[in-house]
């Protein structure tokens, strides 16, 4: 049986997002030309983090907040770092996909134990698994360079005349990935499968009883989100040129989690709003680097205690109020089953 009404609705929303992207794209393409070199690199890192965060948000739709996401991204980073710095180096483009694949494979392996846990229990088990993976980066120094990491990671070789050696060129690569991943994941979020995943998160027992393979539908977003993390890790390594285990430490994981909390995860855009906020905070206080985790922590506390649901809910409420003010009927906020925290 086909659910025509829901399909039509999803297609309509997705079309609107595509049009929005198409309108925004020229602006995004022009953006680096208006920025200094410093801000260009901030922009690239923001885009890479945004990709990682879109994968993270997908994982949260199944009801689990992973704390292994950044270590998983590290698998992508180390894959490309190791293989492109060999004596006979691999092509970046081969490692690009291989890195994502390895990250996905790791998620698949740990899925069996960690997906047996729920809520904060899931968070703890992924925390431990992720930390163990990070320890591998430190300890298997023959491959990973230990605490010093790997340096002289080359930028991607040019394709179609695109040069990725400078920040602007690399930004276009990151932007292309962000747009492709973003649109794919957004359509997935709206799809029947995406809604079924949220239904499993909302009520696992009921879902199982109406014939939903809840195990598969918890594993799928976890693995997909980790593949996306792998892509972001590959780009991070190639952009930075050097990586070490500290690039995948729990403080940076906390940044992703904080973005998801501060922005909210009910809508697709929530975490990105959160990331924008955290990045802005980081740049405003860039002369006080040591204080930044504290500012993130305070933001998380403030949102949890004062603005339940995150900035996205604040925005949705404001939009609704504005609409009422103008007398037009308010839409229901997107996203089918909103999960409870």
């Amino acid at each position: 049986m086909i659910n025509r009404a829901a399909n039509r609705q999803a297609n309509k929303i997705f079309l609107r997002a595509c049009i929005g992207t198409a309108i925004a794209l020229p602006l995004l393409v022009a953006l680096p030309h208006a920025l200094s070199v410093y801000w260009q690199s901030v922009l690239v890192l923001f885009t890479i983090n945004a990709v990682s965060l879109m994968g993270y948000r997908l994982i949260t739709t199944m009801g689990g907040w992973s704390f292994a996401h950044i270590s998983t991204a590290g698998l992508g980073a180390y894959t490309t770092a190791v293989l492109t710095t060999l004596e006979t180096p691999w092509s970046f483009w081969a490692t690009f996909f291989l890195g994502a694949l390895i990250a996905g494979a790791f998620a698949m392996i740990i899925a069996y134990p960690v997906l047996r846990t729920r809520h904060y229990y899931f968070f703890l088990s992924t925390f431990a698994a992720g930390e163990a993976l990070r320890q591998c980066y430190v300890q298997f120094s023959g491959i990973t360079g230990g605490t010093y990491g790997i340096s002289f990671i080359p930028r991607p070789e040019p394709i179609l005349g695109m040069d990725f050696g400078n920040s602007t060129g690399f930004y276009y690569l990151a932007l292309a990935l962000a747009v492709v991943v973003g649109l794919l994941l957004y359509r997935f979020d709206l799809s029947r499968l995406g809604n079924t995943i949220k239904a499993v998160a909302a009520n696992e027992e009921l879902s199982e009883s109406i014939g939903i393979n809840t195990w598969a539908l918890r594993t799928l977003p976890f693995v997909m989100g980790s593949v996306v993390a792998g892509f972001s890790g590959v780009l991070y390594a190639n952009f930075n040129g050097l990586i070490n285990p500290l690039d995948f430490s729990s403080v940076l994981m906390f940044k992703l989690v904080a973005a998801a909390i501060v922005g909210g995860v009910a809508t697709f855009w929530g975490p990105l709003v959160g990331l924008l906020y955290l990045t802005a905070l980081e740049e405003v206080f860039r002369d006080f680097t040591q204080w930044i985790p504290l500012l993130w922590g305070v933001s998380v506390l403030a949102v949890i205690l004062l603005a339940e649901g995150g900035l996205e809910m604040v925005i949705i409420r404001l939009v609704r109020r504005a609409r009422r003010w103008w007398g037009s009927p308010g839409d229901r906020p997107p996203g089918g089953a909103r999960q409870r925290r």
């Binding site: 907040w65 809520h119 904060y120 968070f123 403080v251 906390f254 989690v257 904080a258 909390i261 040591q290 204080w291 985790p293 504290l294 993130w296 922590g297 305070v298 933001s299 998380v300 506390l301 949890i304 205690l305 339940e308 925290r341």
Partner: peptide
Amino acid sequence: HRLREQPFSIFMATLGLSYVLQVAVVK
């Protein structure tokens, strides 16, 4: 107490708190 019955929010709030305390000591 403020977040009782919301264990996950408590968990995340204490995660935020742990970084606040850590940085406070660093500074």
